[in-house]
Amino acid sequence: MTSPVIELRDVGRAYDEGPPALQAASVTVRAGEAVAILGPSGSGKSTLLNLIAGLDRPDSGTVTVNGVRVDRLGEAGAARYRRESIGMVFQFFNLLDDLTVADNVMLPAQLAGMPRAAARRRAGDLLETLGIARHARAYPGRLSGGQRQRVAVARALMNRPPLLLADEPTGALDQAAGEDVARLLRDLNDEGQTVVVVTHDLRLAESCTSRTIELVDGRVVADVAAAR
C-alpha cells in the first residue's frame, strides 16, 4: 500500500463567531489517489483545504503533508512548504494579467530559485503536454476560461509538487470547458499525480476522482471509494 501524502488527525478549527468550521476531522490521502472533498457551503471544505495548504492552523489535532507537520510551520516555513509540496488550482484562475502565459507558468519555479532557462524549458514542456503551447506568448485575458484553467494547472505543476489541490476548479467555467478540465485532472491522476478536488459538484467528483469524502457541519460523515 502506498504511503500517505495527507494525514489529518482529529482536527478542529473554530473562528470567532458561529459553530466550529471543523470538528475532530480525520482524513488520509495516499500517494496516487484522486479524492474529492464534498459538501455544501459552510460544511468546512475551504477550511480543510486551507489547513492542508498551510494557509491556516488548526486549534486541535495534527496536519501532516508529505511528511511535514504543517500545523507546526511558521510563516516562512509554510511558504517554503507550499512552493515545494503543493500545487494549487483556484476557481478564478488567479493568473497575472500583465504576464504572458509562459511567464505565469514559470513564476513558481523562479520563486523557488530555478534558473530562468530551466524554468522556460519546464514551462514549455507543460504547455505542450496540456495542449496550449501555441498560447505561450499570449496574455491570459485573451484566452477562454478553459484555456486559462489549463494555464493555472500548468503553473500548479511547475515545481513537480507531490500534491495538487483544486478548489472548485470548474466553478467559473461553462459545461464544456468544465468537462475538459475534469478530463485533464483525471488524466493527470492516471499518470500518478495525487489530486484533491474541493467541490460541491457531485458530477465533477464522479468524473475525475475515485473516492469522495463528505463533510457536513465540519464533520466527516462519509468516505467512499468507487471504481472510476
Rank of each mutant, 00 (worst) to 15 (best):
M114A: 08
R203T: 13
A117C: 10
R142Q: 05
A118S: 11
G145C: 01
M114Q: 10
V196C: 12
D174A: 07
P115W: 01
V195C: 13
D223C: 08
A177R: 07
G146W: 02
P161Q: 11
D167R: 06
G124H: 02
A154N: 06
E168V: 12
T129G: 08
G178F: 06
R121V: 07
G113V: 09
V153F: 13
R142M: 05
H135N: 08
L215N: 09
R148Y: 04
A152E: 00
R134G: 03
M114I: 10
V181H: 02
A205R: 12
R155V: 01
V196Q: 05
A182P: 11
D167H: 02
L127D: 02
L204G: 07
P115T: 02
A154Y: 02
R186V: 03
A177G: 08
P115S: 01
V220H: 14
A138M: 11
L127I: 06
L185E: 05
D190R: 14
Q149H: 03
G131D: 10
R183K: 12
V198H: 12
R122V: 03
I213V: 15
H200V: 14
L184F: 13
L184V: 09
P169K: 04
A152S: 04
E206V: 11
R148P: 00
I132P: 00
R142Y: 03
M158Y: 09
L157M: 15
G131M: 06
L165M: 03
L188T: 04
D187N: 11
Y139M: 10
Q149M: 02
C208Y: 10
G141V: 03
R122D: 09
R122W: 05
R186Q: 07
A205F: 15
A138F: 09
D201K: 04
A205I: 15
L165V: 10
R148D: 00
L215P: 11
A227H: 14
R203Y: 05
H135R: 13
R228M: 14
L157D: 07
A227W: 14
G192C: 11
Q175H: 15
A166C: 13
Q149G: 01
V197N: 07
V151A: 00
R186C: 03
A119S: 07
A152R: 00
E179L: 14
V197R: 10
P161A: 11
T129M: 12
T170I: 04
Y139L: 07
